[in-house]
């Protein structure tokens, strides 16, 4: 009975479920991507230290930025995304005349950005400060040091947490049904409403979410392994014997 009902739902409503998956993925992926960009900007500036020679104006703007960023993070981590969605969607509807999907993407991006900002900030702060000192001692500017040395390491360290945000977004985008976007939860609710097979419909929905998050986590694991793979290959570039550690130089000229 249960299986038969599931089969019927799938054959009859398969396309609307697929539409739901599509919308869910669009919202979750773009939301995570924009959220990461926002998080890199906000978290990066928050963790950045001013030069010792920085002037009063730079100090003032840094302080101002820190205060604004702090408020942003507190507000968006401290209120439910569902509430953020309804509030912003309706509050801005008459100002920007946006459709629900755009609003959903904006809300999930800003929400994710708040979390990402903290992930990026702690990732940056976890990078050994000797890396910065070495970069600066070679003459790199603050920005060069940040982009070439610190951020790549911070992102590598924080990658599991960043990937986790994608998985969270695949699931939590379901609350965005509140503004009637056709994501998976919204579609499932409609199907359940018209078939009255609540258990079967929501069972299918749960399985689809599980499949999506499993695939996402598999892909994230692959990327993580790739990032941490050490390049152990040693390219022989001269006849210098690399095993002879006491050999200091092969050329006498300088």
């Amino acid at each position: 009975m249960f299986i038969q009902n599931c089969y019927e739902i799938l054959s009859k409503y398969g396309s609307s479920l697929l539409l739901g998956v599509r919308t869910t993925l669009i919202v979750a992926l773009t939301g995570t991507a924009f959220g990461l960009i926002l998080g890199l900007l906000v978290g990066g500036f928050r963790a950045a230290k001013l030069d010792l020679t920085a002037g009063a104006a730079a100090k003032f703007f840094k302080k101002l930025f820190d205060i604004v960023a702090n408020i942003y993070i507190t507000v968006f981590r401290g209120t439910p995304m569902m509430v953020q969605a309804v509030f912003l969607y309706y509050a801005l509807l008459n100002v920007v005349h946006w459709d629900a999907l755009t609003a959903a993407i904006v809300v999930i991006s800003i929400n994710t950005g708040a979390y990402m900002a903290e992930i990026v900030r702690s990732g940056i702060q976890a990078v050994d400060k000797g890396q910065t000192e070495a970069a600066r001692s070679l003459g790199m500017s603050n920005a060069q040091c940040m982009f070439a040395v610190v951020l790549p390491q911070a992102i590598r360290n924080a990658f599991p947490a960043i990937g986790n945000e994608l998985i969270v977004n695949i699931k939590d985008s379901s609350v965005l049904m509140i503004i009637s976007i056709t994501e998976l939860m919204f579609q499932a609710k409609s199907i359940a409403g018209s078939t009255f097979h609540f258990t079967e419909t929501y069972f299918i929905e749960a399985m689809i979410y599980l499949l999506l998050t499993s695939v996402a986590s598999f892909v994230l694991n692959l990327i993580e392994k790739r990032m941490n793979r050490t390049a152990t290959l040693t390219i022989p570039m001269s006849d210098t014997d690399p095993t002879n550690a006491s050999l200091m130089r092969t050329s006498k000229e300088d």
Partner: peptide, 25 residues
């Protein structure tokens, strides 16, 4: 870079990951 690495006896390790070499290296 290759010239300088040669000077310190590390030219043969040019392609190596820095996490895999010894402290002296």
């Amino acid at each position: 870079a290759l010239h300088r690495l040669d000077q310190v006896g590390m030219r043969g390790f040019a392609g190596a990951d820095v996490r895999t070499i010894s402290g002296g290296q």
